[in-house]
Amino acid sequence: MIEYLVLTFVVVYGSWKSTLLWKKFQRSEAIVVCVLSLVAACYLLPVIGNWIPTTETFNTFLYQSISEFVMRSFHIVQEVSPS
């Protein structure tokens, strides 16, 4: 529910603000608002949002293997027990 509210807000704000800035000849600002709103909207869309990588998935993909290697080397795999 809250996701759809924010999605609606982002779409409305993004289109309104970027149009306003474009008309004021603040083209760079208009583009940035548009891009940022688009990124936020994509994440909040029901199906597409789940496909887009997040910082969690991106960093896990990058550092998982390094982390496992280091933990194995340090013999600390068993000792980390998140509650």
């Binding site: 807000f9 982002v10 940022l36 990124v39 936020a40 909207a41 909040l44 949002g49």
Partner: peptide, 8 residues
Amino acid sequence: PVGAIFFA
């Protein structure tokens, strides 16, 4: 919009 990205 940046706040919205963080939320999303």
